[in-house]
Design a protein around this nucleic acid. Sequence first.
DNA 1: GATTGTTTCGGGTTTACGTCA
DNA 2: TATGACGTAAACCCGAAACAA
Length: 243
Amino acid sequence: MMNQEERCNTTLGLRTGTETGTRTGTETGTRGVGIKKEKQSKKNKIGFWLDLSLQLHPKIIEANDHDHKNDYEKEDHDSSSFKTVDDDDEYTIMIKETISNTNVCNNNNNHGSRKKLKLTTEQTTLLEASFNIRTTLNTGQKQELAKKLNLFPRQIEVWFQNRRARTKLKQIEQECEMLKKCCETLNDENRRLRKELQKVRYCSLKFDHRQAPQPSVPFYIRYPIATTMHITSDKIGNSSEED
DNA sequence: GATTGTTTCGGGTTTACGTCA
DNA sequence: TATGACGTAAACCCGAAACAA
């Protein structure tokens, strides 16, 4: 429940736009100061908006897609920056009832939940084909595709955004896998070289025993690293691989 | 050149929905 | 059959950048 102070925290706005399902351009943008502020403080705030939306050209909706289309139309409005009421508490309901017969609408989500559209196979196929040609669309291409698929341009936009994100995620996963394998290979190589080093140490000890008194510094340390590596890989390394 | 409004995008999150144990 | 966990994808939110007026 809201307290008295919150109840008084109301906003009044004017909304323009169309019923075509596209955004009105006020949803995003850091410099759209006035409207942006309203959006950021939408929670726990009652907002009244005068809706001047126009239905320019009612879309022809296929029978089996009817519910989803209507839902999306509602959804698209709800997703705009004017959704200022989130929960149907007593006060909100009262406000709704009060203003229900006027042109003022508060753009509340009527059912408290959004419907999720599942794209058909044909739609997905065409979208994928378009994505393979180009990963971003300009306005014209977006509208053309939306017309073809009987979707809203906003849906096309969202699909492409999500698709780009999925592509990037897959790419990152692949790169991660590659680095893992690379790391494993390097670890294997490291283990192999350590083993070879042990063998060299062992050989040098035997050699010193036969040829000379035990030196104070181990045999392998007396050679520069590069030389040691050379001996290791070319001479002894081969024999170790035969093991 | 600075300011403002608009559009688009990336990154992250939320949520509806399907699947499976 | 019911249900909860989980994965997926559509939709959403926000900040940043680019661009035009």
